[in-house]
């Protein structure tokens, strides 16, 4: 995971605390741009659990991680990458 290295999704380097749809050279969906999200740990948790419920019409193809403990581990990892 590298800063500025976007793939099918935007780089997740430093994503915790970042404003949603804020990487200039990534092509976000209109739905995500209009959602006005801020990637707080709580918001990330809700999004990772059910992406399509949080951002209906977004590009995210992942259908969600049900395991709350796994989500917490993932968010803790993301918080360590900055």
């Amino acid at each position: 995971m590298k800063a500025g290295k976007n793939k099918k999704g935007p780089s997740l380097f430093g994503v915790v605390g970042r404003q949603g749809a804020s990487i200039a050279d990534f092509s976000y969906s209109d739905a995500l741009k209009q959602a006005g999200l801020s990637w707080t740990p709580e918001q990330l948790d809700a999004y990772i659990a059910h992406p399509k419920k949080v951002v209906a019409g977004g590009k995210m193809k992942y259908d969600g991680l049900d395991d709350a403990a796994a989500r917490a581990d993932l968010i803790a990892y993301l918080a360590s990458i900055h």
Binding site: N6, K7, K8, D25, F26, S27, K61
Partner: peptide, 14 residues
């Protein structure tokens, strides 16, 4: 598999 079934069209948007 999903990339293939998506018609090889997924992209990084660039």
């Amino acid at each position: 598999s999903r990339f293939k079934l998506s018609g090889y069209t997924d992209t990084d948007g660039k």
